[in-house]
Structures are given as structure tokens and as C-alpha cells.
């Protein structure tokens, strides 16, 4: 126990009575210094962002382009190749296609169980037409787990028949998801969007490290 005690004489301290007084003076001045630092923070704005209700811009809007949020499918683009269903390592995508009497293949089911999805991104990589992609949404907490199985097909839709490059433009990220998963986080209010746009779109990549 004795050896654990720090020596009375530290570098720069003469020891003896002068050292003793020196220790006291140093302690007092360092306490004063510390108090001054903590006092100075009382005059600054806290760093905290009060997620989720008092954010200036909804957090999804600030996420980078490559962010892998909840999956969404643009059925106008989907050719029904089933690549995504095959690639998915945990089989959380299930697709059914039926051929009707008019010989048109129709998607009757395109379900993604996002409670099981691990956001690996293999399905969206394998999708040749960018029909299946990650949105920027992530706030999908629900009371019942069955609500987390997303049914993208409301009524049977014919599969898309197009060549790559001719596809219609994608809809904004998260828009489709909002239709199939009600109650997603706050929608950006127009003024906030404008203010944001004035400063440069965060998702455009400016300011990325």
C-alpha cells in the first residue's frame, strides 16, 4: 500500500514545505481552471439533436446515397427475373408470377419481410434494372411484427418488358415505401426542404469526407 502512494516530490516540485504549498496552489488553480471550462459551456448551445421530434431536417434526408435502408421495389421496372429472390441469403423476399389466359406474366405477389432482412444489399446488386433498391428510410418500428412484411403488389401487374437504359426514371427514394409502409417518420416540410436546398443538398455528396 505504501509503494502505491505517489511520491511527495514530483518533477518540477521542490518538495518540503515549499513543495507542499506548491501542491496546494497547483490544486487550487487547476480546480479554478476546470470550473472555468465547465462554466464556459453553460453559455454554449448544446450539441444534442433531439431526435426524432425536434430535428431541423428529417434524418433520412441527410443520409448518404449509398445508405442501405429498407428495401423498396418499383414494379414498373421489375421484369420478374427472380434474381433477387434467389440471391437473398435468408429468403426474406418471396415473389409469385402467374401467367394469365392472355399469355402475359403478371406479378401477383412481391413480399419482403423487412423484419428478417439484414440489409446486405445482395438483392439490389443483382437487380439488373434497379427495380429493387434500398430506400433511405429506417424508422420502421411497429407494434406487430406482421406489419413488417411489405406487400408491394396490391393487384396483379404485368411484368415490365424493356431493355436496360430505356427504363422510366426511378421515383424519389422512399416514396414507394411510404405507400406500402404507412406511418414512416416525419415528412420533410416544404420550408425546411427549401432551406436545405439553399445550403446545397446533403445527399448530393457535397461535404462528404
Amino acid at each position: 500500500m505504501v509503494s502505491a502512494l505517489p511520491p511527495a516530490v514530483t518533477p518540477g516540485n521542490p518538495g518540503g514545505v515549499r513543495g507542499w504549498v506548491g501542491h496546494i496552489v497547483r490544486t487550487a488553480s487547476s480546480i479554478l481552471e476546470g470550473l472555468a471550462v465547465t462554466l464556459s459551456w453553460a453559455f454554449r448551445r448544446p450539441y444534442t439533436i433531439q431526435y426524432p421530434d425536434k430535428v431541423e431536417v428529417p434524418v433520412p434526408e441527410t443520409l448518404p446515397e449509398a445508405y442501405r435502408g429498407i428495401l423498396e421495389v418499383d414494379l414498373r421496372l421489375c421484369t420478374g427475373c427472380l434474381q433477387c429472390e434467389k440471391t437473398c441469403p435468408i429468403q426474406c423476399i418471396s415473389i409469385s408470377i402467374e401467367k394469365g389466359e392472355d399469355a402475359v406474366r403478371r406479378l401477383t405477389r412481391f413480399d419482403i419481410d423487412i423484419s428478417r432482412c439484414m440489409y446486405c444489399g445482395l438483392c439490389s446488386e443483382s437487380c439488373a434494372f434497379d427495380a429493387l433498391a434500398h430506400s433511405n428510410q429506417f424508422e420502421a418500428a411497429r407494434q406487430d411484427i406482421s406489419e413488417l412484411t411489405l406487400h408491394f403488389v396490391r393487384e396483379p401487374v404485368p411484368v415490365a418488358r424493356h431493355k436496360a437504359g430505356e427504363a422510366p426514371p426511378r421515383r424519389p427514394r422512399g416514396e414507394i415505401l411510404r405507400e406500402v409502409l404507412p406511418g414512416l417518420g416525419p415528412v420533410m416540410s416544404p420550408p425546411a426542404r427549401d432551406r436545405r436546398a439553399g445550403q446545397g443538398d446533403p445527399s448530393s455528396g457535397e461535404g462528404k469526407p
Binding site: V2, S3, L5, P7, A8, G15, G16
Partner: peptide
């Protein structure tokens, strides 16, 4: 108790 020849001279005190 500490007056032990094996122990190195204690640094504290003074």
C-alpha cells in the same frame, strides 16, 4: 510494521 529490511526506503513522508 513497515520496518522491514527487504523493503525499499519509502518515498512518502516528509
Amino acid at each position: 510494521w513497515r520496518r522491514d529490511p527487504e523493503e525499499r526506503p519509502s518515498e512518502e513522508g516528509r
